[in-house]
Design a binder for these strands. Structure first.
Length: 581
DNA sequence: GCCGTTTTCGGCCCGACTGTTTTCAGTCG
């Protein structure tokens, strides 16, 4: 049968998440629901398109995807729709899914409103709440009715996810405050922040203390708190004036390791860990491990906790249930790249285009960070909004690069490069005669990112065919926290990167983090070289390297897989083989 | 619906907090 529409892994995952939620409202077996949720998670973590796997008949090799779900994926890929979902949507009004977005409203309550009051939409629910018709339902009261009205109002102004840079600065401020409170022995970041996920929803912080009640009191009465979402002895959460949410957990110091593991997550990693504990006759919680007789063994440190279950300590960036638990048990966790491994910066801008400082100042900034090489890669002229360099400017810039080289001598290798735009028609912004004079060439998309998949993929493939191109930068052009990037067909991009030898960039800007962890992990597994670039437009921009390294760590990378951990000689050798140095 | 260092059948994570309840159900992470 012919494929009518293309499905990305994210779109497929959304379908199975939708099925899971509809089934929850239907009060279907929890384990069946869990299976659909797991399949959705697996699809999101998949570096290759599910359609490619389907063609090879390998869908059921993906963890969490069995015969039934594989068949559903194939039905979606071939017919563009899914009979099972269509039948489900006839049984359960899909508009009920909107109700689940209200904090405090889950599948049980949504079903209750639907079956007793025939409510199927947010508007109908709001009307019923205003008219006081919800409070008489079983399990409901005046408070729940008000909570629903507040919740619906909050949906409109719901704070979006934070970039990592905002989340870390917020976390540092609050950790400092928490550590200064009486009785606090330790306060640390947890949750998606500690896992360095590309964006952060709620901020999760964990605290070791023997006296949590007064601490929680002080926390919820902090002057920056707008609203208290929950307050207990071991867990409280608040919304701040600027809309951000913070959640704090407490345990006594001897249980801190268990708490830190629990609050760091991810949810799927925790489930995997608890299953492992259970197979050993133990029960794992945020307090410790409980044996069959009910004796609690407290866990003071994470290292202890993992060791008690027969595992090596797992770096937080890997805790996503993407094979890390098995790897930890079998002693084959990778030795992840670290910030100190980075020895050069290969994507920077100067006043020759839209950078803030001169070439010399950027070189000094690189030296200050202990780097042994830097590439100056100003923009080509295609983009109207940034001052780019015309081909003749490139020759003049080379003279300045030579002068700076003369000044610094052997201290640092200075590469003269350019960030060349891949135009909307797929051609590069400079002719080959200009490209061949550059030491290093970065190709990137900036405009017309909304082109259809075939067109924008062809654009990138065309750039990769140019033998002068060395690096594909920020491949999708996404902007965090919420602007999606180009819809690339990675099934064609990976082989093109492999045959061309072009390196794939992790753009370290916390607003990009592009390519992402999932694609980088798959690319690296194919032997594609990865390069982490800050794309600095000023010296301070080079400090964003840590965010790029976090993506590499989440992608399971070791230092040798990353170009800018190499020696100067290895870099030059690589460029020479590529033919541009 | 998925899966297998106790299983191809019989399992499948755990506790805090809230609001409604006189012992618990629902939601959340």
């Amino acid at each position: 049968m012919e494929v009518k529409k293309h499905w990305t892994n994210t779109e497929l995952a959304d379908v199975f998440e939708r099925i899971a939620n509809l089934m929850k409202i239907q009060d279907e077996m929890v384990f069946k629901i869990r299976a659909y949720e797991r399949a959705a998670e697996s699809l999101r973590a998949l570096g290759e398109d599910a359609s490619v796997l389907a063609q090879r008949g390998e869908l059921t090799q993906v963890p969490g995807i069995g015969k039934a779900i594989a068949e559903k994926i194939e039905e979606l890929l071939t017919t563009g729709k899914l009979g099972f979902l269509e039948r489900l949507e006839q049984e359960v009004p899909p508009t009920l899914l909107d109700l689940l977005r209200i904090p405090g409203v889950g599948p049980r309550k949504a079903a209750l409103f639907w079956k007793t009051l025939h409510i199927t939409t947010l508007v109908e629910l709001e009307k019923a709440a205003r008219e006081g018709r919800l409070r008489s339902l079983p399990g409901m009261g005046e408070k729940s009715e008000k909570a629903i009205l507040d919740g619906i109002a909050a949906l409109a102004e719901r704070s979006q996810r934070m970039t990592l840079v905002r989340a870390w600065s917020l976390a540092h401020r609050w950790l400092e405050w928490l550590r200064a409170q009486p009785g606090v022995e330790r306060a640390e970041p947890a949750g998606s922040l500690r896992r360095w996920k590309d964006t952060v929803g709620d901020l999760d912080l964990v605290i070791a203390t023997r006296d949590s009640v007064p601490l929680m009191e002080a926390f919820v009465h902090h002057p920056e708190v707008k609203r208290v979402l929950g307050q207990g002895e071991n867990k409280s959460s608040v919304e701040l004036l600027d809309g951000a949410r913070i959640q704090v957990w407490t345990q006594p110091p001897e249980s801190f390791g268990a708490l830190w593991m629990y609050a760091t997550g991810s949810k799927d990693h925790n489930v995997r860990m608890r299953e492992l504990a259970q197979r050993q006759g133990l029960s794992l919680s945020e307090r410790g491990l409980t044996d069959e007789e009910g004796n609690l063994r407290r866990i003071a440190s994470e290292e202890e906790g993992y060791a008690m279950l027969g595992l090596a300590w797992i770096p937080p960036e890997l805790r996503e249930d993407r094979g890390e638990v098995d790897a930890a048990r079998e002693g084959r966790l990778p030795r992840l790249i670290e910030l100190q491994d980075i020895r050069m910066e290969l994507h920077t801008h100067s006043t020759w285009s839209d950078g803030a400082v001169s070439i010399e100042e950027m070189v000094r900034a690189a030296l200050a960070r202990g780097y042994h090489a830097i590439a100056i890669t100003d923009h080509s002229s295609y983009m109207g909004i940034v001052r780019g360099m015309k081909p003749e400017d490139v020759l003049r810039q080379r003279e300045e690069v030579e002068a700076v080289r003369h000044k610094f001598g052997e201290q640092i290798l200075i590469l003269h490069g350019a960030e060349v735009d891949i135009r909307a028609d797929g051609t590069l912004d400079y002719p080959d005669e200009v490209l061949e004079q550059l030491d290093i060439v970065i190709a990137s998309l900036h405009a017309s990112l909304r082109q259809p998949r075939e067109q924008i993929t062809a654009r990138v493939l065309n750039a990769l065919r140019n033998p002068h191109v060395d690096i594909l930068a920020h491949p999708t052009g996404r902007l965090l926290p919420d602007r999606a990037g180009a819809d690339l067909d990675w099934g064609q991009i990976y082989p093109a990167l492999q045959t061309s030898g072009v390196a794939l960039e992790i753009n370290a800007s916390p607003y990009r983090l592009d390519a992402d962890d999932v694609h980088v992990r798959h690319a690296a597994s194919l032997g594609i070289p990865i390069v982490i670039n800050t794309d600095a437009h000023a010296p301070v921009g080079m400090d964003e390297m840590v965010f790029g390294v976090s993506v590499a760590r989440r992608a399971w990378l070791t230092a040798p897989q990353v170009v800018n951990t190499w020696t100067r000689e290895a870099l030059l050798e690589w460029l020479k083989r590529r033919g541009s140095a």
